[in-house]
Nucleic acid binder design. Structure first.
Length: 292
DNA sequence: CCGCGGGCCTGAGAGC
DNA sequence: TGCTCTCAGGCCCGCG
């Protein structure tokens, strides 16, 4: 489900409920996520204080006082829900309204400030893993991830360098977390439209023969930063599962220009029509008339 | 090393 | 109503 803007929205919702608070109890109701949750998971977290809630790419990183980092991924359908003291009933009611949703509440953190943080994930593609902070730089899940697109270091030169020599499509390259961190299917489609670049274009064509960025690389970087900023400001996109930690919906899905808009007129006004194609097994939405 | 396809899961929606 | 089929915001792994 979640791409960088949704994960960042979740991070901002978790931080006030967790930072500075102690984890009084952890309930693991279903260990079978993407990988089984380790047997010592609860023991290593119980009684520890949360020093901070961060994000790297689409991973949430919870620093705890023991020196561990709780590395969490939302997969396709993961979400978090925060309830303050005495709101359990409201959560139950919420889940009742959402039918069987509570059956997918796999992990619950009970915080010393009275907050309850619940991880829900119907498809169970999400994951949770404890990693010693000192070993984070060798963590396989994070080691080969590329630059954070909203960081100041991320620029056209960096993107061009990563794409230079790539025979694959621009769409596939931008989805590759080694090239740039945090983009997924929606925001890649939206980015390519904003930059007016075809998803089918060979990735290497944003760099010259020496790997230096051209105008296309500059346009792409501008589009990536803009679309992510806009989406974060809107609280992410809510298609099915994504919600802010307080339960409210994100709004960015109303601002999609091409994603899931097959057959609609091109928002550029170019008289073209948004088309859906399949690349590497995933839907791509774009305007063949103005994305070149 | 690179790129691709399979597989992991459940649920929603379309079509019959 | 209910069945079957397709598709879904991700990513690890094994293959060629």
């Amino acid at each position: 489900m979640p791409e960088l803007p949704e994960v960042e929205t979740v991070r901002r919702g978790l931080a006030p409920a967790m930072e500075g608070a102690r984890i009084d109890n952890v309930e693991v109701r279903h260990r079978g996520l993407r990988w089984p949750i380790a047997k010592d998971f609860e023991k290593r977290l119980k009684g520890k204080t949360v020093d901070g809630v961060g994000r790297r790419a689409k991973y949430l990183l919870v620093d705890v006082s023991s020196g561990d980092v709780l590395v969490m991924h939302l997969g396709m359908s993961g979400s978090f829900r925060v309830a303050k003291d005495g709101e359990e009933g409201k959560i139950a009611k919420y889940h009742h309204e959402k039918a069987k949703s509570a059956t997918h509440d796999h992990v619950v953190f009970h915080m010393s400030n009275g907050a309850t943080v619940t991880f829900n994930d119907p498809r169970r593609f999400g994951s949770m893993k404890l990693v010693a902070r000192a070993k984070m730089d060798q963590e396989p899940l994070l080691r080969s991830i590329g630059p954070e697109p909203l960081g100041n270091e991320f620029d056209a030169a960096m993107l061009a360098h990563a794409c230079a020599g790539k025979k694959t499509s621009l769409k596939a390259a931008l989805l590759d977390q080694r090239v740039v961190a945090g983009l997924g299917n929606i925001y890649v489609c939206e980015t390519l439209f904003r930059a007016r670049l075809s998803p089918k274009r060979q990735a290497s064509t944003i760099a010259d023969r020496k790997g230096q960025p051209n105008g296309r690389a500059v346009a792409l970087v501008d589009a990536i930063k803009a679309v992510l900023h806009d989406a974060i400001k809107a609280g992410g996109s809510s298609l099915r599962d994504h919600r802010r930690a307080d339960g409210s919906l994100g709004d960015f899905q109303h601002n999609f220009l091409v994603y899931d808009r097959e057959g609609k007129p091109c928002p550029d006004g170019c008289k073209g029509t948004v088309k859906r194609i399949v690349q590497n097994g995933r839907s791509t939405f774009y305007c063949p008339a103005c994305q070149k």
